[in-house]
């Protein structure tokens, strides 16, 4: 009798578990799958609707079209450049700061910490920030993707906590051997904090890749358009074109605004989906370190 009751209670938990987890997985993965199958399906055929699980008629002409546009090609360059240049520089500036603030006997350590951490909770807001960028000559300048993103106080705290958990004797020994702080930072701290450095590098890289608003707000040259900004332009066309369908009817070709949108979305997302399974363990580690505090 008692075991039967137990079984029933366990069963209800297992049922809830399976249902909820399956639901969570489906709502998180299916949208990407759906966009993928629509993007590789023939555009005119896709307009019949009903594409849910598998493509009906394969065609890569949407990809050929979007990848053949010079504006999109250029935007890939801009996005890759801001990610590849911005990430290592940001990691260097942030981890150097982390090392400095982890040094116990630092002159003015407490006020410096407060000065940095305060900015996590208070700031000038969008308009003053814009004015400052304008006066620094950073508007419509590639450097606006790099310089304002060099320092992240949140990432700094992650690295600082990691460095503080290392044995102090290690650094003392190096100092006794005559190493100065630059040597210690580059030869000792950076290599030893590789796990957390990887984590914040990935945080920065993903945010550089995904960033849209800075390109939208601070640049207007065609030559500085990122992949995300091109995608927004395509999205806006879709909105204004009466849900895409009417315009698509007029385009009796192998591509439609819809199919272009799906293909562009995939091209922007695929790099993230590809690297993501390999890097996710670092993310998990980073988030956990951050939450422990």
């Amino acid at each position: 009798m008692k075991t039967k009751k137990r079984n029933l209670s366990d069963l209800s938990l297992d049922l809830l578990k399976v249902l909820f987890l399956a639901f969570a997985v489906i709502i998180c993965l299916y949208p990407f799958w759906n966009i993928f199958i629509v993007s590789i399906n023939d555009a005119n055929d896709a307009m019949r609707g009903g594409l849910y699980l598998l493509p009906r008629k394969l065609s890569l002409s949407s990809y050929a079209d979007i990848l053949g546009r010079s504006t999109f090609q250029h935007s890939i360059l801009v996005t890759v450049a801001r990610t590849l240049i911005g990430t290592p520089l940001a990691v260097l500036v942030t981890s150097a700061l982390a090392y400095v603030l982890s040094y116990r006997d630092l002159v003015g350590r407490k006020p410096l910490n407060v000065l940095f951490i305060f900015t996590m909770y208070f700031g000038g807001g969008m308009v003053p920030y814009y004015m400052v960028l304008k006066n620094l000559g950073l508007l419509d300048n590639f450097l606006v993707f790099i310089l304002p993103n060099l320092l992240s106080v949140y990432n700094m705290i992650l690295v600082r906590n990691y460095i503080e958990s290392m044995p102090e004797a290690l650094f003392d020994a190096a100092r006794i051997d005559g190493a100065n702080d630059l040597t210690i930072f580059f030869r000792l701290v950076l290599p030893l904090s590789k796990p957390i450095i990887m984590t914040i590098a990935l945080f920065v890289a993903i945010s550089q890749w995904n960033s849209w608003f800075d390109a939208y707000l601070y640049t207007n040259s065609q030559s500085l358009k990122t992949m995300q900004s091109i995608l927004v332009e395509i999205l806006n066309q879709y909105q204004t074109s009466d849900a895409g369908a009417a315009a698509a009817n007029r385009m009796s070709q192998s591509i439609t605004p819809d199919s272009i949108r799906m293909a562009a979305t995939m091209v922007t997302t695929i790099p993230i989906i590809m690297v993501y399974p390999f890097i996710q363990k670092y993310f998990v580690k980073g988030i956990m370190l951050g939450s422990v505090k």
Partner: peptide
């Protein structure tokens, strides 16, 4: 002590410049 920590100050400088330019300077704009 500042002299002893001169290399730390070099490491601190880029972050401090960023902090002033992109965090505290905008606050004056309030």
């Amino acid at each position: 002590r500042l002299w002893d920590q001169r290399y730390l100050m070099i490491l601190l400088a880029p972050a401090l410049i960023c902090l002033i330019l992109f965090n505290y300077l905008p606050m004056t704009g309030l």
